[in-house]
C-alpha cells in the first residue's frame, strides 16, 4: 500500500512538472517582449530608452540569460512558491493570486459539490423511474444541459433572477447571495456531464447477471438499486470527477468575467489579454496542481471502493489453480 501511494504521488509530481514545463515553453514561444510590456505598464516606450538602459533592464530581470538558465531559475523559484513579479501590475504574482484564490476555490468547490449532488440524483432517479416517458425525459435532460454555452446560461440567469426578480445581485463578490448564480452556471454543465456518464454506467450495471441474482433473492427494486447497483455504477464514473474539477477552473474564467467577480479566473483572463507571462504561468500551474491532486485522491479512493483493485502493481494472477 505504501509503495502504491508513493508511486502515485511521484507520478503526480511528474505530471505537474510536465504541465509547468510545457506552459513555460509555449509562453516563451509567444511573440511578446517582456521588457516592452513592463515599460508600457510604467508608461514608457521601449524606443525612448538607450541600448545601455535596455541591457541593464534585461540583466535586472534575468532576461539576458539563456532560455535554459531562465527556465531553471523560474522552476526553482516556483517550487519555493515564488512566481515572480507581474509584468503589468508590478506586484508579486503570489500576492495577486493570494488575494483572489479564496474566492475562486469557494466558487469551484461549491460548484463541484452542487454538480456532484445534482448529477448523481438525476442519474439515480432517471434509471430508477419506471414510467417510460419520465425515464426518457430524465435520460435526455443531461444532453440538453451540456449543450448550452456557459456565458448564455449566465446571461439568462442575470436577466431573469437579477433584472426581473431581483433575487440575486448581477455582479460582484460580496456575500453568499452573489455566489448563487455563478455556482448554478458552472454546475449545469458539470452535473450534466456527470449524469450522462452515471446513467450509462447504471444502465450497464443493471444489466449484469449479479443484479438478476439480487432480484431473484426477492429484494425490492429500491434495495437492488441502492445496495447492489449504486456502488458498482459509481466506480467507472469516478474518473470523470477529475475532469469535472478541471472544468470548474476553466468555467471560472468565463463565469468570473461575466459576473465580474474578483477571482483567479478573471485574473487569468486579464493576464492572457495583456500577455502577463508570469501570471499566466502561475495560474496554469495552480490549475494543474488542483487537477493532479483531485485525480490523486480519486486514484487513492478506488481501492477503498473496489475490492478487486489491489495495490501491488506487478501482481500476476495465476490461472485458476484451485478447483473445488
Amino acid at each position: 500500500m505504501t509503495r502504491y501511494v508513493i508511486g502515485r504521488v511521484l507520478q503526480a509530481v511528474v505530471v505537474l512538472w510536465a504541465a509547468y514545463t510545457l506552459t513555460f515553453a509555449i509562453l516563451y514561444l509567444l511573440p511578446s517582449d517582456p521588457m516592452e510590456l513592463q515599460l508600457a505598464a510604467a508608461g514608457l516606450q521601449l524606443d525612448s530608452l538607450t541600448p545601455e538602459q535596455v541591457e541593464a533592464g534585461k540583466a535586472q530581470f534575468g532576461l539576458d540569460q539563456s532560455i535554459g538558465a531562465q527556465y531553471w531559475h523560474h522552476l526553482w523559484a516556483a517550487v519555493q512558491g515564488d512566481f515572480g513579479i507581474s509584468l503589468t501590475q508590478q506586484v508579486p504574482v503570489t500576492d495577486l493570486i493570494g488575494q483572489r484564490i479564496g474566492q475562486t476555490l469557494l466558487l469551484s468547490a461549491s460548484a463541484a459539490a452542487v454538480a456532484l449532488v445534482a448529477g448523481s440524483t438525476l442519474a439515480y432517479v432517471a434509471t430508477f423511474a419506471r414510467w417510460n416517458p419520465l425515464r426518457t425525459f430524465l435520460t435526455r435532460l443531461p444532453a440538453l444541459g451540456a449543450s448550452f454555452p456557459q456565458f448564455f446560461i449566465a446571461l439568462f440567469l442575470i436577466q431573469f433572477f437579477s433584472f426581473q426578480l431581483g433575487w440575486f445581485p448581477a455582479t460582484g463578490t460580496e456575500g453568499a447571495s452573489s455566489l448563487v448564480m455563478p455556482v448554478l452556471t458552472i454546475s449545469v454543465l458539470n452535473s450534466s456531464i456527470l449524469a450522462q456518464v452515471l446513467i450509462k454506467s447504471f444502465d450497464e450495471t443493471l444489466s449484469q447477471a449479479y443484479i438478476t441474482t439480487a432480484r431473484a433473492k426477492g429484494l425490492s427494486r429500491s434495495a437492488v438499486h441502492l445496495r447492489h447497483a449504486f456502488r458498482n455504477a459509481v466506480l467507472p464514473a469516478m474518473t470523470i470527477l477529475g475532469v469535472i474539477v478541471g472544468l470548474t477552473v476553466t468555467s471560472a474564467i468565463v463565469v468570473e468575467t461575466v459576473f465580474t467577480r474578483e477571482g483567479v479566473g478573471k485574473l487569468a483572463q486579464e493576464a492572457v489579454l495583456s500577455q502577463d507571462v508570469p501570471v499566466v504561468l502561475a495560474v496554469v500551474t495552480i490549475a494543474a496542481a488542483l487537477f493532479v491532486v483531485v485525480n490523486l485522491i480519486v486514484d487513492l479512493l478506488y481501492p477503498l471502493l473496489d475490492p478487486r483493485i489491489s495495490h501491488t502493481r506487478d501482481k500476476v494472477t495465476p490461472p485458476e489453480v484451485v478447483a473445488v
Binding site: Q208, Y210, T212, T213, R231, N232, D306, R308
Partner: peptide, 16 residues
C-alpha cells in the same frame, strides 16, 4: 423459487 444463474463468474456482486 430460488435461482442458480448461468455464469458463476458474473453472478455475484463484485463489491460485496
Amino acid at each position: 423459487v430460488g435461482l442458480i444463474p448461468q455464469d458463476p463468474m458474473v453472478g455475484l456482486n463484485p463489491t460485496k
